[in-house]
Nucleic acid binder design. Structure first.
Length: 964
RNA sequence: GCUGGCGUAGCCAAGUCCGGCCAACGGCAACGGACUCAAGAUCCGUUCUCGCAGGAGUUCCCAGGUUCAAAUCCUGGCGCCAGCACCA
């Protein structure tokens, strides 16, 4: 078996775990429980090695807790709501080559593939595919929990959830602005362009409306991103030709371009009126709001009637396009311009970077300088004009101060909104538009329309927020920084649309089934449902049993549970829920920090009492490709990351799982690096080889591992300490330390034991068997192979008890003694570096006994990290053993003045040090290729063996070294 | 712009919360040695600079500061990355 590929060997163990039902969650009254889940993935495509990173972590945590004897629930599902499955199906229907190849490689017939053009089929298919991959990664999950969010029973659950949220007052209805196609209805504008033929990257831009009153009382309405520049308006721009349309709103008549009239009516209401020829207006003047100035009207090609309102306020001092257009005016027109073009915003130079400073250098108003810096000639340079506008906008927004009006001296960033409110006393008016043209699949242009009766989850509620933030204080977070981040994120939350119309997968909204519940809203409370799904999967509950009354009883303990025939099942469902809840860890990628995890906390806070609130969140960062991009992105430079199947076949699940855990902290992106992955696999093979060699050692004569030799006691003590630290690290979710200790420190320890002549076979075998259990959470398959070497078949490492340090006796002094040898190796090594010829002998002198006594006086004489010589000498004088040596003590103490390392050697005696070095002589001789090594006490040294009197340097823990 | 993260030796990456045992874990790569006809695999060692005695010097993006002591704390700067709303 060991000859076959890792993946094939791993399947054997996966079958063994399945046969023993190890993934099944079994509630045992009185036994501690552990509930861990990961944010279920959406069926957008096939999984890659990046997805498996976090999932593998979750399995490792689950396995560790299972081995601690806890009852573990580790469920999984597929989040099919929304667009991913629809997009996937569309790609299948379109004949996307990559996807078809993947499907065929899984053995699907053309008929099977054709069936995946139905989104629901695709979602279920991918859900199965995901689950299979999880199993091939060795994950022990409870299959009876597996649910897809489009399953009928899940929809019953969501129906109840929203009915309940409504009853709790968490749903509110109010107007909303959403993308809308006049022919196809609501559409989604996002980069995947599922609903669109173009414009998926468009952003929603919010213009502030600014009214300019004509003498006849009608109002020319402009739209701007910079309402504060109303102080600098010198004129208005009208389209070069055509008409404006009247828009009657709240008792006033506005003039805007025809398309703007349509959009304003859609977004704000009001009615359209008649048309006015642009030419008829040009002679008039209008009154500028706030300032009350009178300005003229001109036609200009800079006006694009399709953008904004088709009427533009001109601020040549701060808008490059206006500046250029003003320069192009006929001399007669220029005379009608407000006389002076002067700046109304100044920028403090100190806040600018070098490139910003550069575009602002020179003379004149800011817009003129930017125009000069970019060498713009006329409005034909539209790309440059846009760049100039964007840069000046950014600079003045960030570093600008108002120089006029009542806001003089205040930053632009803070006055903008106040000025906007001033323009319409009854509340700021805005027009929303896309930053680029958005075209629906049907060919129509998508606009933004007001939805008057949109339902929201009231995440903006301050009462709700404070409940969530309270809960955050009581939870554990990994990484812990997330706790500090969360209050800010919660603060930023506003009410969030919870339902929408249009074609996508999801549960119909119970209050109005013409709406569909939105995917983020239907994935907040599902950990509770995983528990109930198991009853459905086993046929104990039917979909029709899942009434609102049923869920009220099971999750909230309210009411009678409805008219479920089998009361026993009802009671058991309630008990199971109370047993497994709360969630111990919800694990997800870093993309979930701002949306998924917060709403998960929100909804739990609204639904359940304090004792059932989630206990912890674990966030893993991503696996990125060579260029540091997300793995899901196409066109990867430097070569693609191999498909998960290929990697799995080559390195095995264990190889990948170790790679994920060892190569970086979970809280850092890992750049895919195949050599690292290969190395992880090699490390495992190495460990297995070491263990096989231990197994092959001759049977011990005595069935005892009495720790008679120093090196045995040291080995045992180190095992004690490492296992202790490993458990601590597991409990702290400190995966990298676990991996370092288990896969790096332990092999090093075993190697050192053998190099130092350790040969206690009984002890070695016991340590090896313990090691096999330590391997199980991260690399479960190799752990089984390892354990099989030392334990009769039939028991699995996955079912074993996780080791405790107490399995190995600790002898603290043996660690100190071994440090003497390690320190010596280091010192001799550094001497040999500068030693030209190879030495024939090494003489070691162990410090005189009084020095061991003296070194114990140093730690108590330390003040502020330094040796206080006076108190050291005082102590020494009171010690009869030291009195004869007072003359040398000052010099001895001076050695420790700065070091502060004396405490390492407290408790060591000269005779112990001598015997340990004696024992190490053959080792040192071999290690440094020095034929003769001798050890002798300092006081017995002679000038023959130590002509340089180097022996006086000997200190406890540091024998004097003489090479010759 | 807002919010958050990051910057450590050739590369990847620990350490930073809680300053001292940090010339700074570990991996990759490179070099040397053992083994070998040879290569690979494996094992051992070296990889900031200087040093023929266990030492010294200069480092953790940059510039200041606090401290007996700073990769770690504070202030300012530079650079890189991610998310920014119905998209999961």
């Amino acid at each position: 078996m060991s000859e076959s590929s890792p993946a094939v060997r791993e399947q054997h163990w996966q079958a063994a775990w399945r046969a023993r039902g190890l993934g099944r969650a079994v509630a045992v009254v009185g036994r501690p429980k552990y509930y861990i889940l990961f944010a279920y993935p959406g069926p957008s495509g096939f999984q890659h090695v990046g997805h498996m990173r976090g999932f593998s972590y979750a399995d490792s945590f689950a396995r560790y807790h299972r081995m601690r004897g806890e009852a573990v629930f580790f469920p999984g599902g597929t989040h099919a709501s929304g667009l991913p499955a629809i997009t996937f199906s569309a790609k299948v229907a379109r004949g996307d080559a990559d996807i078809l190849a993947e499907l065929r490689s899984r053995g699907l017939s053309e008929t099977d593939i054709h069936r995946l053009e139905v989104p629901e089929e695709a979602a279920r298919f991918l859900g199965e595919d995901y689950w299979n991959l999880w199993e091939r990664f060795g994950m022990l999950m409870d299959r009876t929990s597996h649910v897809t969010t489009i399953d009928a029973d899940y929809q019953r659950f969501i129906t109840w959830q929203f009915t309940t949220l409504k009853a709790l007052g968490r749903l509110v209805q109010k107007p909303y602005f959403a993308p809308y196609c006049p022919r196809s209805g609501p559409v989604s504008v996002d980069p995947s362009e599922t609903d669109l033929s173009s414009g998926g990257t468009a952003e929603m831009v919010t213009y502030t409306l600014v009214p300019f009153t004509l003498p006849d009382g009608r109002i020319l309405l402009t739209a701007t991103l910079r309402p504060e520049t109303v102080y600098g308006v010198t004129n208005l721009w009208l389209p070069p030709s055509g008409t404006l349309t009247e828009w009657a709103f709240e008792g006033k008549t506005y003039l805007v371009s025809p398309s703007a009239a349509t959009r304003l009516t859609e977004q704000l209401g009001g009615t359209r009126g008649g048309s006015v020829d642009v030419g008829a207006l040009t002679g008039s003047k209008v009154t500028v709001p706030i300032t009350g100035a009178e300005v003229s009207l001109f036609q200009s090609s800079l006006v694009q009637p399709g953008v904004g309102t088709g009427v533009v306020m001109s601020v040549p001092a701060h808008a490059p396009a206006d500046w250029v257009a003003v320069q192009a005016l006929a001399p007669s027109d220029r005379d009608r311009l407000t006389k002076d073009i002067r700046p109304i915003i100044e920028v403090s130079e100190s806040g600018l970077g070098p490139s910003d400073r550069q575009v602002l250098q020179g003379e004149g108003v800011p817009a003129a300088r930017v125009v000069a810096a970019l060498a713009i000639k006329d409005l034909g340079d539209s790309g440059l004009v846009q760049e100039a506008t964007a840069r000046l906008y950014r600079i003045e927004m960030r570093a600008g101060l108002m120089t006029v009006g009542e806001y003089r001296g205040e930053p632009v960033a803070t006055v903008r909104e106040r000025i906007a409110r001033q323009l319409f006393p009854e509340g700021a008016r805005v027009l929303r538009e896309f930053s680029e043209k958005v075209i629906c699949r049907c060919g129509e242009e998508v606009t933004i329309r007001r939805v008057p009766d949109q339902w929201f989850l009231a995440y903006g509620s301050s009462e709700w927020k404070s409940r969530v933030i309270d809960q955050v204080q009581r939870m554990g977070f990994h990484p812990r920084e997330y706790r500090d981040e969360l209050p800010g994120i919660i603060e930023w939350f506003e009410d969030r649309p919870a339902v929408r119309k249009g074609r996508w997968l999801g549960t119909p909204f119970p209050l109005d089934p013409s709406w569909t519940i939105e995917p983020i809203a239907d994935s907040t409370f599902y950990p509770a449902y995983y528990i109930i799904r198991r009853f459905v999967a086993q046929g104990e509950l039917r979909v029709d049993d899942l009434t609102n009354e049923f869920f009220d009883y099971v999750f909230l303990g309210k009411g009678s549970g409805g008219n479920l025939a089998n009361r026993e099942v009802l009671e058991r469902a309630r008990r199971e829920f109370l047993y497994w809840y709360p969630v111990d860890i919800n694990l997800g990628g870093k993309e979930h920090k701002r949306v998924h995890f917060p709403v998960f906390l929100y909804v739990h806070a609204a639904m359940l009492p304090a004792e059932l609130q989630p206990r912890g969140i674990f966030i893993n960062w991503w696996m990125t490709n060579y260029s540091g991009d997300k793995l899901s992105k196409k066109d990867q430079k430097g070569g693609a990351v191999p498909p998960v199947d290929v990697v799995l076949a080559t390195y095995g699940a264990d190889g990948l799982r170790l790679y994920y855990s060892l190569s970086a902290s979970p809280f850092q992106d890992i750049q895919w690096e195949e050599t690292q992955c290969r190395n992880a696999r090699a490390r495992l093979d190495d460990i297995l080889r070491m263990l096989t060699e231990i197994r092959a050692l001759p049977e011990p004569t005595f069935g005892t591992d009495a720790l008679t030799a120093h090196i045995d006691r040291w080995f045992s003590s180190r095992l004690h300490a490492i296992i202790h630290e490993v458990r601590r690290a597991w409990d702290d979710y400190d995966l990298r330390t676990v991996a370092q200790d288990t896969y790096v420190a332990l092999p090093t320890l075993f190697r050192r034991y053998s190099a130092r002549g350790g040969s206690n076979t009984t002890l070695l075998r016991r340590a090896a068997e313990t090691w096999s259990r330590l391997l199980s959470p991260i690399t479960p398959h190799i752990a089984e192979e390892a354990r099989g070497l030392f334990v009769p078949s039939g028991t699995l490492a996955a079912e074993g008890i996780f080791p405790t340090g107490e399995e190995f006796a600790s002898h603290p002094i043996s660690m100190v003694l071994e440090q003497v040898v390690e320190q010596l190796e280091e010192d001799v090594g550094s001497l040999l570096k500068i030693w030209t010829k190879s030495p024939a002998r090494l003489d070691l002198f162990v410090a005189a006994p009084w020095k061991y006594r003296a070194v114990e006086l140093i730690p108590p004489s330390m003040t502020g990290g330094r040796l206080d010589m006076k108190s050291f000498m005082e102590r020494a004088r009171q010690d009869p053993q030291l009195v004869p040596w007072v003359g040398e003590l000052a010099k001895f103490g001076a050695e420790y003045r700065k070091e502060g390392e004396s405490s390492r050697w407290v408790g060591l005696s000269a005779s112990e040090e001598r015997s340990i070095l004696d024992e190490a002589r053959p080792f040192l001789s071999k290690r440094f290729h020095i034929p003769q090594v001798s050890v002798c006490p300092e006081e017995e040294g002679t000038d023959t063996t130590d002509p340089g009197s180097r022996r006086k340097r000997a200190r406890p823990g540091h024998p004097a070294i003489v090479l010759s």
